[in-house]
């Protein structure tokens, strides 16, 4: 296991290097000139050239790439073209709202979806099963911004139970922190509830026909114990995979939800940076997101072996 982990961690290096090359080239090949955007509408070509020089964009691509990689190895991800702040500090400012939203969403999704999926499998073919599956299709199909608007209209505008928008850091009060996350997390969790519930149902259905389930029932275990200790645990590998992917997606930024509910997270930072051609910020963010994906994949693989002793590395 240890050897496997070391190998996987070492494999991160070439992956990140390839990501670095791709993101660097993609940004430079994308049309648009950050210097022209910064200079504003009334700036002359001379003004734009001056800004381009200040930003180091006059250097050759290879020179820019080597400089970026070199600085990054020293822990310096560069400085935003616009805000004159380090990319690291901008990401660290914006990562907490994203983490909060992701955590809350995934908790809601798991708490709702896993029991629902399990019940649907247990009651296969019943009205409950059909309802859960029908709702999950709906959950997949309705765009998150529509769900967001409906929730805002009902619970914020009409009932006045929640604020329309905004994020409150946990340092300003735990109650307000949770209170402001309820609507966005609920909106965002719908698609993940749908996804996880379906996956749970399918996985549990597969194991319900296994011999060890029949054995568990035969030895007199209650249905609750059969479902939780034997069925769900053995069905957990694909469910964990889906949850892991969901976490990665959530941390990589959920732009629409952040925009609709005005949450200053990584999603809106990414979109702003891409629109402004803020190369250092986009590069830093993509490197972070890639690292998160790699890390989560690794964690999922480790969890596999914990859940299923047959899986060995």
């Amino acid at each position: 296991m240890l050897v496997y982990l070391i190998k996987r961690i070492l494999a991160v290096i070439p992956v990140m290097l390839i990501v670095a090359v791709i993101v660097f080239l993609m940004l430079r090949l994308t049309p648009g000139d950050p210097a022209a955007i910064i200079a504003g509408d009334a700036a002359t070509s001379a003004d734009i050239d001056l800004i381009r020089e200040k930003l180091g964009l006059e250097r050759s691509l290879i020179e820019q790439f080597v400089l970026w990689i070199g600085n990054m190895l020293g822990g310096d991800f560069g400085e935003s073209f616009y805000y004159k702040r380090s990319v690291t500090s901008m990401i660290s400012d914006r990562i907490w709202p994203t983490l909060a939203l992701a955590t809350f969403t995934i908790v809601i999704a798991c708490v709702v979806a896993v029991p629902l999926g399990t019940l649907a499998a247990y009651k296969q073919g019943s009205w409950l099963d059909r309802t859960v599956m029908g709702m999950s299709v709906l959950g997949f199909s309705v765009p998150v911004f529509v769900i967001g608007y409906v929730l805002i209209y009902v619970f914020a505008v009409k009932l006045d139970w929640f604020p329309v928008q905004g994020y409150q850091p946990i340092a300003d009060g735990f109650g307000g922190f949770i209170y402001r996350l309820i609507l966005p997390s609920s909106a965002l969790s719908v698609i993940f509830i749908a996804l996880i519930a379906r996956m749970t149902r399918t996985s549990v259905l597969e194991v319900l026909n296994e011999d060890y389930i029949r054995t568990a029932r035969a030895k007199g275990l209650s249905e609750t114990k059969v479902m939780t200790r034997h069925a769900l645990r053995n069905a957990a590998v694909p469910i964990v995979t889906v949850i892991g992917i969901a976490i990665a997606v959530l941390i990589s930024g959920v732009v629409v939800t952040e925009s609709v509910f005005v949450i200053p997270g990584l999603g809106t930072l990414t979109i702003d940076a891409i629109q402004g051609r803020d190369y250092p910020t986009v590069q830093g963010l993509i490197m972070l997101f890639s690292f998160v994906y790699v890390l989560i994949n690794l964690v999922i693989d480790v969890i596999y072996s914990l859940l299923d002793p047959r899986i060995r590395y």
């Binding site: 608007y149 805002i152 209209y153 914020a156 505008v157 006045d160 604020p163 329309v164 928008q165 905004g166 925009s259 609709v260 509910f261 005005v262 200053p264 809106t268």
Partner: peptide
């Protein structure tokens, strides 16, 4: 100066006094 990107959210937030 509060950044709100979504036009509908802006209007709702204004209507609710946020």
């Amino acid at each position: 100066w509060k950044v709100i990107r979504d036009a509908q959210t802006k209007m709702n937030a204004l209507s609710k006094g946020e």
